[in-house]
Design a protein around this nucleic acid. Sequence first.
RNA 1: GGCUCCGUGGUCAAGUGGUCAAGACGUCGCCCUCUCAAGGCGAAAACGGGAGUUCGACUCUCCUCGGAGUCACCA
Length: 493
Amino acid sequence: MANAVVRTRFAPSPTGIMHIGNLRSALYEYLIARVAGGHFILRIEDTDRERIVDGAVEAIYNTLQTCGLQHDEGPDIGGPFGPYIQSERLPTYRRYAIELVEQGDAYPCFCSIERLASLHEEQVGEAFIGYDRHCRDIDPADAAARIEAGESYVIRQKMPLDGETSFTDAVYGTIIVDNKTLEDQVLIKSDGYPTYNFANVVDDQLMGITHVVRGSEYLSSTPKYNLLYEAFGWEIPVYVHLPLIVGEDGRKLSKRHGATSFDELIDAGYLPEAIINMIAFLGWSPGNTTRENFTLEELESAFTISGINKAPAVFSYKKLNWMNEQYIKNLPDDKWCAMVKEKADPLFEEKPYDATMLAHVLKERTTRLSDIPETIAFMVETPTYTRDLFTLKRAKLNAEKAAVILDALITDMQMLPSWDESSLHDLFELAIVTQSRKKGEIMGAVRLALSGKTITPGGAIELAVILGRDESLSRIKNALTFLNESDVVSEPV
RNA sequence: GGCUCCGUGGUCAAGUGGUCAAGACGUCGCCCUCUCAAGGCGAAAACGGGAGUUCGACUCUCCUCGGAGUCACCA
């Protein structure tokens, strides 16, 4: 095992959304393979025919691709150990199940669902004993005859009645359980499909999986899988159980905790790279550095199994926000500009605007892409002014002063040969001198007139560039009109 | 309830017998500043509890408390 090529697999069931817990499992599985120069396999576990959701498999492909978690083998690209969809491997599971029955490690069970249900009811309040092993000792010949007669049955694993089973997990260490706490679990269901409990063992073995990576919710059933490996005489893989991702209330993350699927996070305006970086650090840390921003590529060489933590981790949206801001700030300008345009174009419609400047201004002010429309809404709405708006305490600006300032400025602005950042900058700097005003007064007055908002992304010059000459001038004129007409009680300037 | 696991600031976490117990997010304050951000500086904030072992425990042992997971013909 030590010198074998590391092979890991991501084995989701196509039951709907890609939960971030699943995504993190996929990420760690991918990373453990990549770090060791091994292979990452995708396998679809669709053995529960009732829970299959249309389009779920496509969603899995899309998510993996969007995140850059490229698999080496899988249903869509094939590989030497296919098929990679469990529903296409039924004969294999049956063959192995029969082998187990023949060697006495499993048995057919004819108990009805109803009988099982009443069994559970009787056990309420009592210590768990599970299935009562009613069919465990049926004579093989009788059992064969009943199967022949068409009676419905399942195949159950025959657990040892005493002794204990132990195994060593790469993150949780050695775990020991009494065999008498193990139930004779179902291996093959009455519909002929295997259970996860059986299929995952058979497939992991047949597909040469060396490291079984999965959530810690499987920790307590792992001894049962090991008994299966032993019954077949197979080598037990390295187990890497991952701590749970929980919500703010400490419970297993679920829908009620907010956006918990990859798609929802994307819709909310988070970048895939930020999501990956974020979940990489949920339950893992590099240890020898305090750095927290790692790209997928960097993780591919930095990841370590020993850095995986045991305690459950709370998913923090606040930290995700910060992480997303970091990634936005590091985006190449052209790429960021395209993202901004995607959000801004529909708002501006036919109105012209300077997308480059808008992107520039938004780059250090955006937490989530989905926040952009609200942030820039004022740019496409006609500003409504109040005299209070023009009161800037620190710049010592008020409505009266603003009227004077803008009045003195508007002509020069109209005459400005080139409406660009440096020209506007020079014009305002000159005004500061000629009007003997402080920068805050001039800039503040213009910014307020252009936006109608006390808080704006960017300052006077940036807004003027974004809005363009016509819109800017029109807004300043409107502001001036308002200031003059509303100036009922004139105060000394 | 049985079994299994977990327990360092609000959150993510480093720490592997000797540290004034890192760092990050968030929070608060200051600086910068045409607003808001960004950025810079600084602050508050933790080893669940109790016994041991030891010259010395966050680190080892036991107990206890708390939390979680699991007990399906779901994965």
